[in-house]
Design a protein around this nucleic acid. Structure first.
Lengths: 350, 350
DNA sequence: CCGCGAACTGTAATCGTTTACAGAGTGATC
DNA sequence: GATCACTCTGTAAACGATTACAGTTCGCGG
């Protein structure tokens, strides 16, 4: 029998209402009971300010109503919009969301998946920076459903949502070529990641498709960040003054490139057209506003969340793998058109 | 006795190692045992890939090793940097972080505090958009330690960390006046929030302090957002062409104002100086880069996290209330100096 | 060889909830 | 009035770990 100290439990309520703990539980969960019993239990619970212990409930029920989202970097706007959309799906269903920042450390990613075995979370949305054999092995044994945001080898038996960064890059390069640009530089992020590799592929694909020969000297890699983008742009422009446009692997790099251009007295887009990627708030923030490829991070978050909850309450479907189509959002940094803030013409869908 | 299905439990291990569940628990938690016992338990655990059930552990232990952070908007860079710093403090200590987005709904904020009673989280960092009597009442009865990021009436018995947005605003206005600006407009966020009110006070204080009379027509309020900032700036400049500078309650508004100025052919800072607030990535993203008041969101997150963990393992100290001093980060939007990207002179501390 | 203490181990209670099962009460029907 | 069906209730067993307590083993000194 619980003493007066400590928060009220089902037993406290039972004592006060003069019924058994079973009846308390039944009343509070809306299972049938005699009107009189219902009244007394509800009154006792209200008077004592009873709130069921969620941990005990999880232990019995085997479900925590918690989901985990693991991504490389809380600060990156692309992941922030994933978080927002995941919340939008899961919060109305009564799930809490655990955030895990892996800082792009592969071992940390594996740990998150492994820790599903502690039963502390009902499922995981994982955004790995790269996928190794170890990832696949660990994912295959995951103790709870996992949805991966990113590309997996076809064999993997895990739900996934991927961006099509090859097509996205092609959209951007094609757009630049249609505008008459020929010396198109490329500032990429770290090359040893899946998106990094794909963007590189897209860049070369689109150039070849247009009958041009990619010049390796025009494609550089660097860290993500505004400063890094500015430095890379300066180096490129120093070495190859003939460059008429630059495509960047995210909006931060693109903004950095735009700053570098300004510092050198180049006009955007007349002297240098700039295209970013992710269509984050930064793209609209720039002046001129940046043309940017939207890889649909929000959409990927939403779809991943939907897949996860479907697997949680639906049971076992076959493995799903969706791809989100990229959109090119055209703004002044490639057209020079004077548009009002907030506008932006959506051009293509791959 | 657990059958073969389901994940291994302490009982499965015990059976396989030929010992009792108590010994299993002791070995796994590093309490004393005979070398032979240790070896057998560890081997059995390793072979079965045993991971302790965190829910059961929490039930017995009364601690979940989970903390909750509730803020108005996941997308706002100020809150994102709080999240990052909170993670930096709590992750090394083995805490998981639950994110809760209240969407600035007061009732939602109250629910988060109340839900501490379900024992699902060991503590809460709450970032309320405004503090009502109901807030204080609910906070006083909170079932777990809470740290508030924001201003509380002195009487409240809750740890808190506040920004000094009055001083921050004074820094900005004083800076503008030192630069010879006299017609200083003010684009504020929603006025019925605590920060909104304080920024207004700071604006008027600094003007009076300098012997100027605040002109109510120059101070407007609007939603947060780039577009909103642009619209507000257009309205202000239409109505009062003599304005020579504008101070904005966050960087998004400031960027919007900068866009509006560009659209009207005004030069920044020659024709219009612009100051933002929060010193988010957006401030560096702008062209020219924005002078901005850093209210220390990251620092507030870090301090709040430290207070919370101190209260969790330390026990009961007296109530603490810290204030983070603002910094003015001066960039081109008020000086016109051609600085390289990434630089920015830090001027004053209140 | 006995007794003592230390070191280890096992049994069982505990955390707070849900729920299978069986018992108790109610009313209707023949 | 006995029987039956039905609804409601209480007892007790889970869920999976930790831990107080009591019991066992062992070494060692006398």
């Amino acid at each position: 029998m619980p003493t007066s100290d400590g928060p009220p439990t089902v037993e406290t309520i039972a004592a006060r209402a003069g019924v058994s703990t079973a009846s308390v539980s039944r009343v509070l969960n809306g299972h049938g009971a005699r009107p009189d019993t219902v009244r007394r239990v509800e009154q006792a619970a209200a008077e004592l300010g009873y709130v069921p212990n969620g941990v005990a409930r999880s232990l019995k029920g085997g479900r925590t109503r918690q989901l985990t989202f693991a991504m490389p970097d809380v600060g990156n706007p692309a992941y922030v919009s994933m978080v927002r959309q995941i919340q939008a799906v899961t919060k109305p269903l009564g799930y809490r969301l655990l955030l895990h920042s892996t800082d792009a450390v592969a071992e940390d990613e594996l740990d998150v998946v492994r820790s599903l075995a502690d039963r502390t979370s009902d499922g995981l949305i994982l955004c790995p920076i790269r996928v190794t054999g170890a990832h696949l092995e660990v994912l295959a044994r995951a103790a709870r459903p996992v949805v991966v945001i990113g590309s997996l080898p076809g064999a993997a038996a895990v739900d996934s949502v991927r961006a099509d960064s090859v097509s996205g890059t092609v959209l951007a390069i094609r757009h630049l070529m249609e505008r008459g640009r020929r010396r198109i530089a490329f500032i990429n992020g770290p090359a040893d990641t899946v998106p990094g590799r794909n963007r590189r592929i897209g860049y070369e694909t689109a150039l070849r498709e247009a009958g041009a020969v990619p010049d390796p000297a025009l494609a550089v890699t660097t860290e993500f960040g505004i400063e890094a983008g500015a430095r890379a742009a300066h180096r490129l422009l120093d070495a190859h003054p003939g460059i008429d446009s630059v495509f960047c692997a995210n909006d931060q790099l693109a903004l950095g490139a735009a700053h570098a251009a300004h510092d050198r007295g180049l006009r955007i887009p007349e002297d240098l057209a700039v295209v970013g990627m992710d269509d984050s708030e930064l793209a609209r923030a720039g002046h001129p506003a940046l043309t940017s490829v939207d890889l649909g991070s929000g959409a990927r978050g939403r779809i991943a969340a939907e897949m996860l909850v479907a697997r949680l309450d639906g049971g076992a479907h076959e493995v799903r793998c969706e791809t989100v189509a990229p959109r090119l959002v055209v703004r002044e940094s490639t057209t020079g058109a004077r548009t009002r803030v907030g506008s932006g013409a959506v051009v293509g869908v791959a």
